[in-house]
Write a protein that binds this DNA or RNA. Structure first.
Lengths: 194, 194
DNA sequence: CTTTACCCGACTACGGCTTCACAGTTTACG
DNA sequence: CGTAAACTGTGAAGCCGTAGTCGGGTAAAG
């Protein structure tokens, strides 16, 4: 067997955690060792280890300890709900961070700070895709695929290029229409300054 | 004038902050009112207000208070450096969150959820460019142009995909070599999981 | 027996606030 | 002018999840 009874330090090492983390989990009742030695050492059973594995899985998804506890107490009842809530939270968080990026880019663009701006603007992106060999049709295909793959990310990307909301709406709308047969449908695509 | 002397509550409302936030800023010496009334009320001058405006700008970029304090004390000396550091931090943070998203999607085992995620990972970007009609050579050209146009942005972009530093280095190195005539030079490019 | 390498519980620190409790001050209304 | 509401002041504690530190006890190897 794989040494089924472990002390804190060992268990911590096995899971790549620090000892104090396990002490904390014990103190808040998230993971109590199922027994103690005569000298009061924590003894974690294999079952405890599995419980900890579940804790780590959820933690690596960023689920707060309080939620993890609820899940474990209800024997895995509302996992999916919690994870979906967390997913929504992550989306919000990423929007927030992207907003901060934009603020920084704006601040850095102020002439007094010019230096090299670390983000590309619209014309540059277009130039990039063209240099790689994309033509108008290719770019349209690119938008369509982007929209299909992740509408949210498409929106964020267009925003990050500083494209006004109205035009983003237009771009995304025709990105959702399926491939144009004839061709005379395309309103100005990404191409610079319309 | 626009009522140039303000008390805490008023200033807070004017900037959309809470009173306690300003009290906190005072307590840590980030923004002390330039005077006090006879009954010891804080009086913020217009100059104080401008200082606070600068604080808010930087805070909205997520710059930590300690850094803001340093910037204000050095009269705006190293703003650009701090902002670029923050930008790098944001990239790391977003990679982390993307990682959490992936964990969740895996746990839920429902790829349909992927579309609700706000960011693309490496495989998805590759798929996107392929769908637009790019082949290996096109992607290589794309990297070369990216590197030429803005090395910093190229670096940030690759980081934002969660690609390990070592591989970013490799990609950028061969992006700097000029167009390969023969062709047998390309180490694994963007392509997924090499 | 001595030396390591553990273990114990209780504590502190981090950031950026918020909330609380309690007392004094100013302002609005009648 | 009186009074009540809405302000103001201070200081302390709490939040999140984790890392780390303390003095002192215990286990196992040599």
């Amino acid at each position: 067997m794989t040494s089924s009874i472990l002390t804190v330090g060992r268990l911590a090492r096995r899971f790549g955690l620090s000892r104090s983390t396990l002490l904390y989990y014990d103190s808040i009742g998230l993971l109590r060792p199922s027994s103690r030695s005569r000298s009061n050492y924590r003894h974690y059973s294999e079952e405890d280890g599995e419980r900890l594995a579940q804790v780590c899985r959820l933690r690596s998804a960023g689920v707060p300890l309080a939620d993890i506890r609820r899940i474990l107490e209800s024997r895995g009842g509302g996992v999916a709900a919690v994870l979906e809530r967390r997913l929504a939270e992550l989306n919000r968080e990423m929007s927030r961070l992207r907003g901060q990026q934009e603020v920084i880019v704006r601040l850095l663009k102020r002439p007094s700070l010019r230096r090299r701006v670390r983000a590309l603007d619209r014309q540059q992106w277009v130039a990039l895709l063209r240099a790689a060999g994309l033509d108008e049709d290719g770019m349209q295909a690119w938008h369509r695929e982007f929209e299909r793959l992740s509408p949210e990310a498409h929106q964020d990307f267009l925003e990050s290029l500083g494209i006004p909301a109205a035009e983003i709406g237009r771009i995304r709308t025709w990105s959702r229409r399926r491939a144009t047969g004839g061709g005379a449908t395309g309103p100005p695509r990404l191409p610079a300054r319309s």
